[in-house]
């Protein structure tokens, strides 16, 4: 067989989902629910790493990527946090307990767990961006490989906050700063008023330590401005990680929808090469730098 013709040894992919049952859901913030699913075959999926994602099919509506907020247990039960935004999520919101959905995964590269050992780690999440970090935060708090850990969670307003019970649990263990873009005095409670960027100097002062590693997940503008904030203050771009959101149809680097141009003009598929990236590999080409 000539060299350039197809290699017969390559293992073929599957684009066909495994069946999972929608077990139940709880409301978790505005138009957001935490869903529990159970894989019909608990062994249908390799154990995901924090930050990896799955493709959820709602038959008839299509497929979209979601992060694991908890990974499948021995019975194949796992959780995902879903905000109703588009057609797939709207169809999911119409589903009832017992309905069948499709699941593929895990996909992508997770957070750099191994690089957090012995480090002072600051995690900053915005809005739905807390979801891809939840599983990581749980594992970090359980295993305590870090030297210091602190969390900042920004939301536009109180009603858009998510994972209340998780945040209360985490706040027992590590410093956690909630920030709200807008809030009345009564809504503010223990939260700080402003965006994570506006409040970061103040937060760092309160912490009393300087992070060695910064993990970011949220709207792209928030991640970009915060990454620039830390770089301007002398942090290495190699110490900053972020998780990128893109539209995905295949999750295996074929359909092209999640492409990203890196600063060296190489092409990447966020589904396969991300969604977590180190800041120095992204800037400055693909991102709109803050005005």
């Amino acid at each position: 067989m000539p060299r350039t013709m197809m290699s017969e040894s390559a293992e073929l992919l599957s684009l066909t989902p495994s069946v999972a049952e929608l077990l139940d859901f709880v409301d978790d913030g505005e138009a957001t629910r935490r869903y529990r699913f159970r894989l019909r075959d608990p062994n249908a999926m390799a154990t995901p790493l924090p930050g990896q994602f799955f493709m959820l099919s709602v038959p008839g509506a299509g497929e979209a990527p979601f992060t694991f907020t908890t990974v499948p247990d021995r019975e194949g039960i796992f959780c995902g946090l879903v905000r109703r935004v588009g057609s797939v999520t709207s169809a999911l919101f119409e589903c009832r307990a017992g309905d069948l959905v499709g699941v593929r995964g895990p996909f992508g590269r997770g957070w750099p767990m191994e690089q957090l050992a012995g480090q002072r780690v600051l995690i900053v999440a915005g809005g739905c961006g807390l979801a891809p970090l939840a599983c990581l935060i749980d594992q970090l708090i359980a295993q305590r490989p870090y030297r210091e850990l602190a969390l900042v969670y920004g939301a536009r307003q109180r009603s858009l906050q998510m994972l209340d019970d998780s945040r209360q649990r985490w706040a027992q263990q590590v410093p956690l700063f909630d920030t709200l873009d807008t809030a009345t005095e009564a809504e503010l409670g223990g939260a700080l008023l402003g965006t994570p960027l506006e409040l970061m100097d103040d937060i760092l002062l309160r912490l009393g330590w300087v992070p060695d590693k910064v993990l970011l997940c949220g709207p792209e503008v928030m991640m970009n401005t915060l990454a620039c904030f830390f770089v301007e203050r002398g942090h290495s771009p190699r110490s900053i990680w972020l998780s990128i959101e893109r539209r995905m149809h295949c999750a295996v680097g074929l359909c092209g929808h999640c492409y990203l141009t890196q600063h060296d003009l190489s092409h990447h598929y966020v589904c396969r090469d991300g969604p977590t990236y180190r800041w120095d590999s992204l800037q400055p080409v693909h991102v709109a730098l803050p005005e």
Binding site: L15, S57, P59, G60, G62, E63, A64, V85, G86, S87, V88, T89, P219, E220, E245, R246, R247, H249, C255, G256, H257, C258, Y259, L260, H286
Partner: peptide, 24 residues
């Protein structure tokens, strides 16, 4: 229900547009 795939084009305005309307 069948899932169909079809040729798409990276030159369409909506190619990368996400459900949130964010469009890289």
């Amino acid at each position: 229900i069948r899932r169909q795939r079809f040729w798409d084009s990276c030159l369409y305005e909506s190619f990368q547009r996400e459900a949130s309307q964010h469009n890289p």
